[in-house]
């Protein structure tokens, strides 16, 4: 599953793949930084709606974008985290520096398949 990048003016949404590991993080880093630089992005949103596996390589890529955006006075948010991703964010301490938004999940709940349904 490919990572998708959606830009809306100066907001970049990165729709992460099902598994975020060492294999894909290098590419996400390069592509995201390229778009951030080129399109003067002020807000990066990591969308975890498709993701059910992430290891510390994923933590590295989120933390890295946090640093990049902080340097540019921008912000980083994470949306649509399932229980596993919430746990990874908690254990790694990411939840202390990255704003986690839940609204999007609730808004879409009607037409979006929830995590519990997919297992």
């Amino acid at each position: 599953m490919q990572t998708e990048y959606v830009r809306d003016r100066n907001v970049l949404t990165i729709l992460l793949p099902e598994e975020v590991d060492h294999c894909c993080t290098e590419q996400i880093r390069k592509e995201a930084d390229h778009i951030i630089e080129k399109c003067l992005i002020s807000k990066v949103i990591f969308d975890f709606s498709r993701t059910d596996f992430m290891d510390s390589s994923g933590i590295g890529v989120v933390m890295g974008r946090y640093k990049v955006m902080k340097f540019r006075n921008g912000i980083v948010e994470a949306v649509n985290l399932n229980r596993r991703m919430q746990r990874i964010f908690k254990i790694s301490g990411l939840e202390k520096i990255i704003m986690i938004k839940k609204e999007e999940m609730e808004e879409k709940n009607g037409d979006q398949k929830s995590y519990e349904d997919s297992i």
């Binding site: 993080t25 290891d55 510390s56 390589s57 933590i59 590295g60 890529v61 254990i91």
Partner: peptide, 14 residues
Amino acid sequence: DLERSGMGFAFMEA
């Protein structure tokens, strides 16, 4: 340089 988070062993332990 590879943007490793340095959390690998911590995750294994956790």
